[in-house]
Simulated scan of single mutants.
Amino acid sequence: MKRFFPVYVRVPLIFFTCYGLLEYFIDSGDKPAIIAYPSVMLLLALVLLVIIALEIVASASNNIINQLMTPEERAEKERLENLPISQIPFVKNLLQKLTKTKPITSEKEIELDHDYDGIKELDNDLPPWWVYLFYATIIFSVIYLGKYHLFGGDNQFQELEKELAIAQKDIEEYKKTAPDLLTADKVILLTDAGDIAAGKAIYDANCVACHRADGGGGIGPNLADEYWILGGDVKEIFNTIMEGGRDGKGMVAWKQQIKPSDIQKVSSYILSLQGKNPADGKAPEGDKVTNNPASTTVATDSLAVKQASAPDA
Rank of each mutant, 00 (worst) to 15 (best):
R246N: 13
E243M: 14
D247G: 12
I237H: 08
V266L: 09
W254R: 12
W254D: 14
L273H: 03
K276Q: 07
K249A: 11
I270K: 00
I258A: 10
Q274Y: 11
P278V: 00
V234E: 03
D262H: 13
K276W: 07
G245W: 07
G275H: 01
N239S: 15
D247I: 14
G248S: 09
G275K: 05
D262G: 11
S261I: 01
S268R: 08
S272E: 00
V234D: 02
D262K: 14
S261V: 02
I237D: 08
L273T: 01
K276Y: 05
P260A: 02
S268F: 05
G245Q: 04
S267L: 05
V252C: 09
I270H: 04
V234L: 04
Q274V: 09
I270N: 00
Q264G: 02
G275V: 04
V266W: 07
S268Q: 05
E243S: 13
M242I: 13
G248H: 08
Q257C: 10
A279W: 00
I237F: 09
G248E: 08
G250F: 13
G248R: 06
I263C: 06
S261W: 06
I263P: 01
N239G: 10
N277V: 06
Q274N: 07
Y269A: 05
K276T: 11
I237M: 02
I270G: 02
D262L: 14
N239E: 13
M251C: 12
K276D: 03
G245Y: 06
M251K: 13
G245M: 00
A279M: 03
W254H: 10
I270A: 00
I258Q: 05
F238V: 00
Q264D: 08
G275N: 04
E236D: 13
I237L: 13
G275T: 04
V234N: 07
K235R: 15
E236S: 10
Y269S: 02
